[in-house]
Amino acid sequence: MKGDSENRFPEGVARREVERRRNGVAVRLRDAVAEEIPIAFVYNDRPHAVMMATPADLEDFARGFSLSEGIVDDVSQCGKVEIVEALAGIELRIDIPAANAALLEDRVRELTGRTGCGLCGAQTLDAAVRHPPAVAEAPDVAEAALRRALCEMPSLQVVNAATGAVHAAAWANLDGHIALLREDVGRHNALDKLIGAMQRAGTDPCTGFLVVTSRASYEMVMKAATVGIGFLAAVSAPTALAIALAREANLTLVGFARADGYGVYAHGRRLLARSAAQPAHEVFGQRTA
């Protein structure tokens, strides 16, 4: 059982001894570190995947992963979610309809994922690169709202504040205020947890936008588009494949998002600049207004 000092930390944070050396002086102390353990997804009693993840918000993780990976089409198809602690990690035992379980069996994707891995174990190129349907509807987002969300996020990242080791995925309302945020050592896991939280809250993807603290890799765009999210802003860079998929999926993709600027890589019409009278000037490697 954790002591009182450990209970002050948020879920997913552990304490470990460290020797800190500064200016030739060594000090031993107990440091806050992010937990990372195997999380096994078990559907209808059959193992499917093992992801290395932070053991927090696990029901959200179960439902979000099931949706973003196309295992179910709607959160209502996720029945009972049982969280079972095992010697080596945690099992998420999820009940899904028999028809979904049969399709899952056909995919033959029993896999072991490294931290946040979104493709590990895919056995064919078609399985590795999924093409979700184009997002049917997505909102316009004001620059001011994006800036507000970016400014709000750090104060809500409690696990990262304690450890400096995790990613965050946040859902912002169109006014830029953060409505939901989830953290994990894996960027894909953080997004899956957020998707699960959104579904449980009944959040409509047309009522806001997604902000992530990581790079915008293909898997992040794929997961967002799969659940109907049409606007994704990443603090770091996008990949070429992510840009191609965003363009194909009708998803607005913003990279290098900062309070003082950003790069627009796909469907930039939805990001509303300060003034239509101030056209954007394209410069290689950056976008300025």
Rank of each mutant, 00 (worst) to 15 (best):
L119M: 14
R63E: 13
A169D: 09
A234Y: 10
G228P: 10
P205T: 05
L103N: 13
N7S: 05
A145P: 01
V50T: 11
L104W: 10
C151R: 13
A149D: 04
E6G: 04
G196P: 13
R274K: 11
A276M: 10
C117K: 00
S217A: 15
L251F: 06
A127C: 04
R114D: 09
T252N: 05
V211I: 12
A138T: 12
L253E: 03
E91L: 11
V25Y: 13
I90Y: 14
P238H: 07
D60V: 05
A161N: 06
D126H: 09
F9W: 13
V42E: 00
L251M: 12
I83E: 02
R8I: 03
V13M: 06
P132E: 04
T112E: 05
V135G: 05
F61C: 06
V221I: 07
T252P: 06
G79P: 00
V212A: 15
T213R: 09
Q199N: 10
A257G: 14
R63F: 03
L210P: 01
V211R: 05
S5D: 15
S155F: 09
I178Y: 08
A56L: 09
A40W: 08
K223D: 08
G228I: 06
A32K: 06
A26F: 10
P238G: 06
N23T: 03
E91P: 02
V212E: 05
A127E: 15
R182M: 04
A240N: 13
A62W: 05
P97R: 09
T112F: 15
R147S: 05
V129S: 07
R28T: 00
P47N: 01
F231M: 10
V159G: 02
G116A: 07
P97N: 00
G118A: 15
G176Q: 07
A122S: 13
G285N: 04
A244L: 08
T213N: 02
I178W: 15
V185E: 04
V50W: 00
L194V: 01
L92Y: 08
E143I: 02
I71P: 00
L87N: 13
G202M: 07
G186E: 14
L180M: 15
V50S: 01
M1N: 15
I243W: 08
P154A: 12
R200D: 09
A134Y: 09
E17M: 01
P279Q: 02
K80F: 06
A14G: 06
A99H: 02
A149H: 04
A32T: 03
N44K: 10
G285P: 05
S76N: 10
E105Q: 07
R22S: 11
R182N: 12
R107N: 11
D140K: 08
Y265G: 04
A168N: 04
L194N: 13
A134K: 15
R187I: 00
R114L: 02
P205L: 13
P238D: 11
E59T: 11
W171S: 02
T115F: 00
E35K: 11
L156Y: 14
M1K: 11
A266T: 00
D106H: 14
K223G: 07
R46E: 14
M52W: 03
I39M: 12
D95W: 01
P279L: 03
A56Y: 02
G268M: 02
A56H: 01
D184A: 08
V166C: 05
G255L: 01
P238N: 07
D57Y: 14
V264P: 07
